[in-house]
Amino acid sequence: MTITEERLDQVELQDLNGLAKTDIDDVLDYVHVPTAKIPPYLELYDRYLRQRWNVNDLDFTQDRIDWTERMNDDSRNSFLSIASGFHHGERQVEAELAPLFFGIPEDYKVFLTSHLEDEARHTVFFDRFYRDVVGLEGDGIMDVLDGSWGYIQETFVGPFGLLAYLTDDLRRDPYNKHLQMKYATTYMIWIEGVLALSVMKITLNYARDFKVLPAYYTGFTATCRDEARHVQGGMRFVRQLLDEDPNYVTDIHDTLRTLLTMGAARSGYVYYEPLGWSEERVQALFMDQLHKKLAMVGVSLPADLENMLSMVKPTLAGG
């Protein structure tokens, strides 16, 4: 077994305590496998059964101390403007998944039940973080979400509004494979595969390098490993549609064209520097993540989209 294989095996097998010590970069590497090695849906489901973690096992006491005593206003603000996109993003990908169930392959349906349960757990994870660490209060999930709304970028509503409206299209016409492809491109390729994995890297690198927020690091690293399954399931589905009819690639390109057009907009600055990042580095991360997902499904970008990708302003959100 090579060192790389050994590291990835560690990611595969760790429980919550082990994930507290796992490097986020290893978890990100764990996502990307060549097309031929994307596990079958039922194998991903089996992995879910073994990797499932209990969000209520996390103890945020030390995180609360770090938040109030060891972080300053700048780092708290930068952190919130990044994490809040996830707080809302997790809720969106949980609430918008159901219409996909109707028209997909039988084995994917089984796996998708676990995907949905993961997203509910991720939503609860952020709800706990905002209550126990940031100190927001509220009756129920939506109250706390409303409390962090002010921190998200206005451009958030681009990809997540698109997801909401495509969900509605799919609800009306769930067997339409063009719609399924547009939906999977928005949900699994862009929101999970590009936005989420990039933002995970930024906030988890920060927590690791500055040795703060241990329960956040643990829970969010576990979240990232869950995302690896969602992305791999999604890429298997996209690949399956392309095998049925290679012309569905047009739906991927058309959807990315809309996402990248919206991605060129930004309404305010995000100060990455207190977290040890710069906008250029985040932009490069986005490009790399999209190329890796497309490589998993064997799709390339036409020149106009490649050019648009290089001009994208990072949307700090995920699911």
């Binding site: 681009g158 509004g161 698109l162 909401a164 409206y165 959807t255 809309t258 919206m262």
Partner: peptide, 20 residues
């Protein structure tokens, strides 16, 4: 985002090209 307004006619991708 919460679909208080729904797009009941028109192409969704085209609509979101001008989202903001």
């Amino acid at each position: 985002m919460y679909r208080k307004l729904m797009l009941e006619k028109g192409d969704t991708l085209q609509f979101f090209t001008a989202a903001f």
